[in-house]
């Protein structure tokens, strides 16, 4: 994983609540054996009509959304299936972070392992962001802060280990493997074997 330190971008706002991973990437696009190229299917059924044409009223299709890297989503983002294809698709599309009031557990875990940043904010900050699409934000991983239009800065929660891995581009598998003697000891000394 590449190190991620700071994300500066305008926001694109998608106010829909409870966006599940089936909406982020519909199941029929999971028949892949690679992580690449999933961006083209991101939000497919929200983004395109049944003939495959872009829907003009879908937020990511607006011309202003073009180079935005930060998605502001409605309450409770990423619930549902554990598919890691969801953060893979978001990243492949060019998005780097999502801001919401609540972000589902498995999605958050998967996202952090791939360098996609889940930012949970309070209701008031969220409302401000929803009301101001296209506003400039800065997400500072080291400080765990979200600055909005250079003034309002709020802290967001991020697990310190995930932060460390993000800042240093550390692969978590390497970290577990460093503990292999502890794992061996555990296997030998446990009172029962699976």
């Amino acid at each position: 994983m590449q190190a991620v330190k700071i994300i500066r971008s305008r926001t694109v706002v998608m106010p829909t609540t409870d966006i599940d991973t089936d909406q982020i990437i519909p199941a029929r696009f999971l028949t892949t054996t690679s992580r690449e190229g999933l961006g083209q299917h991101l939000f497919n059924d929200l983004r395109r009509d049944s003939d495959g044409r872009d829907k003009p009223d879908f937020e990511l299709n607006s011309p202003e959304a073009g180079d935005c890297q930060v998605l502001v989503a409605g309450n409770n983002f990423g619930c549902g299936s554990s598919r890691e294809h969801a953060p893979w698709a978001l990243l492949d599309y060019g998005l780097k972070a999502v801001i919401s009031t609540e972000i589902a557990d498995i999605f958050r875990n998967n996202a952090l392992k791939n360098g996609f940043i889940p930012v949970v904010v309070d209701q008031k900050t969220h409302e401000h962001l929803l009301a101001n699409p296209g506003i400039d934000v800065t997400i500072d991983i080291e400080q765990s802060t979200l600055s909005i239009a250079d003034d309002l800065a709020v802290q967001f929660p991020i697990d310190s280990f995930s932060r460390f891995c993000l800042l240093n581009g550390i692969d978590q598998l390497g970290y577990i493997r460093q503990q292999s003697s502890a794992i061996e000891k555990f296997e030998e000394s446990r009172p029962w074997k699976p």
């Binding site: 554990s82 598919r83 577990i176």
Partner: peptide, 8 residues
């Protein structure tokens, strides 16, 4: 779990 964790 996600696929990265499956690998772990």
């Amino acid at each position: 779990i996600g696929t990265t964790e499956v690998g772990h």
